[in-house]
């Protein structure tokens, strides 16, 4: 069963790699959104430094959101989603596999790029490692919770906007703890509690979200 889940992950990742464009577009969007802020706010180094963590995190949320509606869409269109529902693998496990694949193809490239954007936004040196750590811990929650939104809107024609309306409020805890952890590290405070809360939220969403998403897919396909 785990083997099947692994093969779903491999399939999604290789599909995305061969298709190429989706991941590149998400990364490009991430960079462009962050680089809009100096134009809007002004190029003063100290102001950019203050907002850097927050801007990078918000841009990461938006980029993640951008790719969510494709999570089940292609499978729904070519009928593989019906096959997943009918297959002996529990649908919940399929959702977990799809979420992990989404994380590998969307969030992981963002984490690789984030330090470069950190340099552009004048992020203090003490902030780089915490930024990478928090993104590593926090972004899986985005994919798991996003899976709920993607499955709720998969059968709808104009699901994209609804998806953002539903999912963005649920991302607030990740944003809060992700930013607080980095800021605490920059300020020289102990950030352990923020890391633990962020990790807890991720684990909680990993445990709960697949059930909701699977229920939503079943209701949607009826």
């Amino acid at each position: 069963m785990i083997k099947l889940a692994l093969s779903i992950i491999m399939r999604d990742v290789s599909l995305s790699l061969r298709h190429g464009s989706a991941t590149t577009m998400v990364v490009g969007f991430f960079i462009i959104v962050v680089s809009m802020f100096p134009f809007a706010i002004g190029p003063e180094q100290n102001i950019l430094q203050r907002i850097s963590v927050g801007v990078i995190w918000v841009a990461a949320l938006l980029s993640c959101l951008l790719s969510l509606d494709r999570m089940f869409q292609t499978d729904y269109e070519d009928g593989s989603l019906d096959q997943f529902v009918l297959s002996p693998v529990p649908l919940e496990l399929v959702v977990v596999a799809k979420s992990i694949a989404h994380w590998l193809t969307t969030s992981l490239p963002l984490i690789v790029i984030a330090p470069i954007l950190g340099i552009m936004m004048n992020l203090p040196n003490e902030g780089f490692l915490p930024l990478i750590y928090t993104m590593l811990i926090g972004t899986p929650a985005l994919s798991f919770i996003g899976g709920i939104g993607a499955s709720l809107t998969v059968t709808l024609r104009r699901g994209g906007v609804l998806l953002s309306l539903l999912i963005l409020p649920l991302y607030i805890p990740v944003l809060i703890f992700g930013v607080l952890a980095v800021k605490a590290s920059i300020g020289g405070y102990d950030a352990t509690s923020h890391y633990l809360l962020l990790l807890g939220f991720t684990l909680f969403s990993a445990a709960i979200a697949p059930w909701a998403a699977a229920a939503a897919i079943r209701s949607g396909l009826e």
Binding site: I148, L152, L166, P169, L170, I172, P173, I176, F177, L180, L197, F201, F204, I208, A212, A215, A216, S219, G220, E222
Partner: peptide, 23 residues
């Protein structure tokens, strides 16, 4: 059905969000 899933997910989250906003 879809709306009831949305509301239940929202209920779980509204508690977490309340806590994290306080924090």
């Amino acid at each position: 059905k879809i709306a009831s899933i949305v509301s239940l997910v929202g209920l779980v989250n509204v508690i977490i969000i309340k806590f994290s906003v306080d924090w």
